[in-house]
C-alpha cells in the first residue's frame, strides 16, 4: 500500500510540476525536505531522552503496571492480542493521556516506547500487527481535550467557540479510526502475511 502511495505522490508531483511549470520548486522541495527530516529527527533526541528516562523510572517503580491494570477493561477491547500485564499497555495508556491533555512533546516519546514494546510481541518484525495499526490509527486521529496552543494563538477570543466543535469532531474521527481498523484487519487484502508471501 505504502509503496504505491509513496511512488504515486512523487510521480504525480513531477507530472503536476511540469504541467504547472513548477518543476524547479519540486526539485527544491525534495532537497529541502530531506534536510528538514534529519533536523526534525535530531531535534527529537533531547525530548525523547527526557521522557524515556522518566518512563524508565515509572516502569521500575511499578507505576506503569498499576496504570495498565486500571484501564484494562478498555484496552483489552482495543488491543486483544497484548497480554494483560505487558508493559506496552502502560505505555499506550500514558501516550493517550498525554495526547488527550495536549502534551504533544511527551506523547511522541511515550508512543514510540509503546511501539517498541508492541514490536516485542510481533513475530514478523517488518510488518505491523493489528495492535500496532490500532495504536497508530488512534494517534493519527488525535484524541484531544485541550486545543493546540497554535490554534489558541491564531484564533484569539474565538478559540473557546471551537472548543466543543473540536472535541466532537475529534471524537468522530477517533471512532471512525477504531471502526475502520477493526473492519479492515479482517479483510484478506490486509491480512498478516505468513512467511514466504511478499507482495505489497
Amino acid at each position: 500500500m505504502l509503496n504505491y502511495i509513496w511512488f504515486g505522490m512523487m510521480a504525480i508531483a513531477v507530472a503536476a510540476g511540469i504541467y504547472n511549470g513548477k518543476i524547479d520548486a519540486v526539485t527544491e522541495a525534495a532537497i529541502d525536505m530531506a534536510k528538514i527530516s534529519v533536523e526534525i529527527a535530531i531535534g527529537l533526541i533531547g525530548i525523547m531522552a527526557l521522557w524515556l528516562g522518566i518512563m524508565k523510572i515509572a516502569e521500575k517503580s511499578g507505576l506503569i503496571r498499576i496504570i495498565a491494570k486500571l484501564l484494562r477493561p478498555i484496552t483489552i477491547r482495543l488491543f486483544p492480542d497484548v497480554p494483560e500485564d505487558h508493559p506496552a499497555i502502560g505505555s499506550i495508556v500514558l501516550n493517550m493521556s498525554a495526547n488527550i491533555l495536549g502534551l504533544g512533546n511527551a506523547a511522541t516519546p511515550l508512543g514510540l516506547k509503546a511501539m517498541e514494546e508492541l514490536q516485542e510481541l510481533n513475530e514478523r518484525k517488518d510488518t505491523a500487527t493489528n495492535s500496532m495499526v490500532m495504536f497508530l490509527a488512534i494517534n493519527t486521529s488525535s484524541v484531544q481535550l485541550i486545543l493546540p496552543a497554535t490554534v489558541v494563538a491564531l484564533m484569539g477570543a474565538t478559540a473557546s467557540e471551537i472548543f466543543i466543535t473540536t472535541i466532537l469532531a475529534t471524537s468522530c474521527s477517533t471512532i471512525a479510526a477504531i471502526a475502520a481498523v477493526k473492519f479492515l484487519e479482517k479483510r484478506k487484502r490486509f491480512a498478516m502475511e505468513t512467511e514466504g508471501d511478499s507482495n505489497d
Binding site: M1, T127, V133, S141, V181, L184
Partner: peptide
C-alpha cells in the same frame, strides 16, 4: 511510529488513517 521499530509493511494503517481524517 512505524519507522522507530523498523516496520515497513503498514497493512491497513493508511486507509484506516485517511478514512478517519475524512470523517473528522
Amino acid at each position: 511510529y512505524f519507522g522507530s521499530v523498523g516496520v515497513v509493511r503498514s497493512r491497513h494503517a493508511v486507509p484506516a488513517g485517511l478514512f478517519a481524517d475524512a470523517v473528522g
